[in-house]
Amino acid sequence: MVTLAEVAKHAGVSASTVSYVLSGKRSISASTRERVERSIDDLGYHPNAGARALASSKTNIIALMMPLRTDMYVPVMMEIAIAVATAARAHGYDILLLTGEEGPAAVRRIEGSALADAMILMDVELDDERLPLVRGAERPVALIGLPGDPTDLTCVDLDFTATGALCVEYLANLGHRELAVIGEAPGVYERHTGFAERTLSGVRSRARELGVRALHRPCLGGYPAMAGTLARIFDERPGTTGFIVQNEAAVEPLLNLLRQQGRAVPEDVSVVAICPDQVATQASVRLTSVAIPAQEMGRRTVERIVAKLEGRGRPEVQLLEPELTVRASSGPAPI
């Protein structure tokens, strides 16, 4: 890799002169500047993030904190991350991806270094332990997710409370009075992860309003766990005819187990999923679903961060309205 010293030697100037040309902090004659810039082009020199930070206090890098947990559906997380990276690149920024479960330590590491100009946090919990540091951070921060108290924070998310309510309302309008929510893995609720807790809140609130009974059971996903969860649901609520699934790993096991039990979808049982469109359309029965708008979430979050970096941003919460797409997995409740 070409160094700053090699550029200086090629241009016949000092290393400090090259640094001043790059930073613009001192006036350099036009002829010297042209000679240095020609050497930079000829040698293919690219200053590293540390050099850029020292020269201009700007790295053109945004840190994306995305803990990869075994009980979360990673493809959705990666789709959001790719959307963030694509949108950031369009604005001239690169992404520094942090995937470890460091919590506040990761925020401190970015805040106390010249690694990035701003931070985006994913996997937000209702009482996220990173929030006190975020509120006091000098660098702009945005959250993909909604904590319990979003005061003074910039957040972008699907409106999961409205999502849960929409699923209940749709099934209730079809005549279903006994619903079961097959949720994420137990650990997701133990951490009080925002999207899961808010979906459940929306389900329960709307079910009460409509006089519908809704049972919630977390599930690890996979056939053994789904078999146990389904058996428990029908043991406790044998009249269940509507399922709301917020667990991508449980979708296909649920459909297959219902089939094995002789329960036809949607004639006997209706299934509505909260999942990416790809999961819904590729299931063995095309699923009625509320999509996770990963592209839109990533794009809007980057726009909010860039606005903050340019001095135009202010704390705000943007919740995307859920849209339910009817497919083959739902129908009127059996008579």
Rank of each mutant, 00 (worst) to 15 (best):
E197W: 12
L171S: 11
G262N: 04
E267M: 03
L319P: 05
S284I: 00
P315V: 07
E37F: 07
S14W: 00
I82G: 07
L96N: 04
V13F: 11
N48M: 01
L166S: 14
A162T: 10
T325A: 12
L174Y: 04
V13D: 03
L22M: 05
G175W: 00
A106Q: 14
D123H: 11
V251T: 11
D268P: 13
S329F: 02
D157Q: 08
P334G: 03
I244E: 04
R217I: 15
R217N: 10
N60H: 15
L257D: 11
V272H: 10
L131D: 00
M297W: 09
I40K: 11
V285K: 00
T99Y: 02
R299F: 01
T86S: 13
G112Q: 12
A273M: 12
G183Y: 05
L210Q: 01
A90S: 14
A283F: 09
V302P: 02
A51P: 06
R198I: 12
H176D: 14
T229M: 11
R263G: 02
G164V: 13
R232K: 15
G331C: 02
R108T: 15
R108L: 13
R327M: 12
L200N: 01
L220A: 13
T193C: 03
I82H: 15
S19L: 04
Q295C: 00
L171Y: 03
E190K: 11
V84C: 08
M122T: 13
Y93N: 05
L254F: 13
A294K: 01
A30D: 15
